[in-house]
Design a protein around this nucleic acid. Structure first.
Length: 569
RNA sequence: GUGCUUAUAGCUCAGCAGGAUAGAGCAGUCGCCUCCUAAGCGACCGAUGGGGGUUCGAGUCCCUCUAGGCACACCA
């Protein structure tokens, strides 16, 4: 599509002696549409040119040469130079693109780049609770969006299937395994064991030591421990899959921590050679004091077993070799900020290309807590994700019964709406913000919510169905879409790809969520102001086409967030 | 104690790497369905934690104070 911003920057660059790219970064989009479609603030040139900003603006205005087919008006307001895009041109540009592209906004800008996204990563033998939702949906959205922009993406579910927690479970299972019906209800029963063994560990240091030994045995390939581990892992994955099916999550790799079990000796060997791996209190550590991190990174515990950090280092080495990544994103809660700082610092000692160490990026997000406080599997105060999703689906079903009892396939729609509401709720705020879990807020289907976006989409479908035909792009008179409401929509649709790029620049899916709300609102306004199906064929064709365009973008955007659109609701 | 992070309306959040009059939703009050789905639209109400600084310009950058959250070696 035509890049209006670039055209304006180029035109200004020919008048003032400043780099085009630099000028482009100064150009902004006025909040108030009355001030034009693009604006150039001249304040920053004042010092250099030793002239008052309004004078500079006037000067530029007089000298600037710009295609009138593109920009119909240039105005000086204070120190601003406001540009008004030729609307008909813009409408044509946008709608022709909608017509031409099967997948609007799709791009090749990421071609040849590999992005590894590490997300979800629940712990085996523990319930999948609402705390795991964020990583799963944020990572999932980033995965979809990077892919849409042409990147080669690799989604990794780095399962928490290793570590002392397993030593604990094995110990608990040894002690009381017969008391629990693990086959019947694996996760819940294992959770009970986990809570119980933790209680005992707290009181008895010897038991804790035994748990650590169990993990050491597991690492060393002890058959009994390995057998139990494999069993727990398989049972857990089966449970997790239920949630992933509901959420529509996809992973290219399920290599969890255990996968790196045999890849850690190499890491330790490399680190040994650097001379930076030192003994301290019986453990092998890397001191990071000189890097401004006052907590050392433990590579090997005093009993010879490895740590989370070592496994992450092995994973970096493996992913660099296997995926040749340009970026490796870790969608993990901000609790682990220090951990990643340490690991990324130590990774520089692994002797891998700088491309890899520079590509490592922690994408942190805020914590979900209950009104009563922090969630803890050990304490047993959690909300399971499956329960939340089912509750949301049930709520959606109830609303459908009230509002649209004649609807076919209610269950399917309820699922899309219920799940969509939960996903959208999680993706609509900046990821760094903490969240206090509130049933009423998540299960609210009004206002800026997933169901609102879905509802707006359904309206577009409904209008198109009622029209009974779809005009071709040649039949659309672009001049019929110059009213305020239509202009707003066109501008938003024009900006779609830019929004997706912003999401990847900031690793922030909420930018897309808010965009969809804006677009849905713009359409609702349009829908309210204008009757779409009217006598005048030219107006009708134009409005139908715009409606179609909105639906297309809403559906595409929602899909990128992992949300499915119903056709009716 | 050290480091990181958050603070915008009664509540939940926006605010495009400093720009024009700080935008929404929820809650509350009021209006709009003989008309393409009222899960909608419109109106009213209401805000930048305190104090300094940098700048032509600060919600945004710096300092400081206050209040929350998180992390700080054998959990992950």
């Amino acid at each position: 599509m035509i890049d209006f911003k670039q055209i304006i920057a180029k035109a200004i660059a020919e008048v003032v002696n400043i780099d085009e790219k630099e000028l482009e970064s100064y150009i902004e989009i006025p909040k108030d549409a009355n001030n034009g479609d693009y604006a150039f603030p001249c304040f920053r040139l004042a010092k250099e040119l030793k002239k008052a900003p309004p004078m500079i603006a006037n000067d530029i205005k007089e000298k600037i040469q710009i295609d009138e087919q593109m920009v119909e008006k240039v105005e000086v307001v204070g120190g601003y130079l406001n540009f008004y895009i030729q609307q008909e041109q813009m409408v044509e540009e946008v709608l022709k693109e909608i017509d031409a592209q099967e997948e609007y906004g799709k791009s090749e800008i990421g071609k040849g780049k590999n992005i590894v996204i590490d997300y979800s990563a629940p712990n085996i033998a523990k319930p999948f609770h609402i705390g795991h939702l964020r990583s799963t949906v944020i990572g999932g959205a980033l995965y979809n969006i990077y892919k849409y922009l042409g990147y080669h993406t690799i989604g990794v579910n780095h399962l928490g299937d290793y570590g002392t927690q397993f030593g604990k479970l094995i110990e608990g299972y040894k002690l009381w395994g017969k008391e629990y019906n693990i086959e019947e209800d694996p996760i819940n029963e294992l959770t009970k064991i986990y809570i119980r063994i933790n209680q005992v560990c707290k009181e008895d240091e010897k038991v804790l030591e035994q748990c650590r030994m169990n993990f050491k045995l597991l690492e060393d390939g002890d058959p009994y421990c390995t057998e139990i581990w494999e069993k727990f892992r398989a049972l857990s994955l089966k449970e997790f899959q239920k949630v992933y099916d509901l959420l529509g999550s996809h992973f290219d790799s399920w290599n969890g921590e255990a996968f790196y079990s045999d890849k850690m000796p190499e890491v330790i060997e490399i680190l040994e050679k650097t001379g930076k791996l030192v003994e301290s209190q019986g453990a092998k550590i890397i001191d990071l004091e000189d890097k401004g991190i006052n907590t050392p990174c433990i590579i090997e515990k005093s009993n010879g077993s490895t740590t989370y950090a070592t496994r992450d280092l092995a994973a970096i080495l493996y992913r660099a070799r296997t995926y040749d990544f340009d970026k490796a994103l870790y969608v993990v809660s901000y609790e682990q900020t220090l951990h990643f700082k340490q690991v990324f610092e130590v990774a520089k000692l692994l002797g891998i290309n700088e491309k890899y160490t520079n590509g490592l990026k922690h994408v942190p997000f805020g914590m979900v807590s209950l009104p009563t406080g922090k969630m803890s599997t050990r304490e047993g105060n959690i909300v399971k994700l499956e329960e939340l999703l089912n509750e949301s689906i049930a709520r959606a079903k109830k609303i459908i019964e009230e509002k649209n009892p004649e609807l076919e396939n209610k269950d399917e729609v309820a699922k899309k709406v219920g799940v969509g509401a939960v996903i959208f709720n999680d993706l609509s705020n900046s990821r760094i913000k903490d969240e206090i879990f509130d049933w009423n807020q998540i299960l609210n289907f009004q206002g800026e919510t997933g169901p609102y976006v879905q509802y707006t989409y359904v309206r577009t479908k409904s209008v198109l169905e009622k029209a009974g035909y779809m005009p071709t792009i040649e039949e659309v008179k672009f001049v019929k879409l110059l009213d305020e409401a239509s202009k707003n929509i066109i501008k938003l649709i024009y900006n779609f790809e830019n929004i997706l790029i912003q999401v990847t620049e900031k690793e922030e899916p909420s930018i897309l969520s808010r965009y969809l709300i804006d677009l849905a609102k713009a359409f609702s306004n349009f829908y309210n102001d204008n009757k779409i199906l009217v006598e005048d064929k030219d107006i009708q064709n134009a409005r139908i086409y715009l409606t179609y365009a909105v639906g297309k973008v809403l559906k595409t955007g929602a899909k990128l967030l992992g949300i499915e659109m119903p056709n009716k609701m």
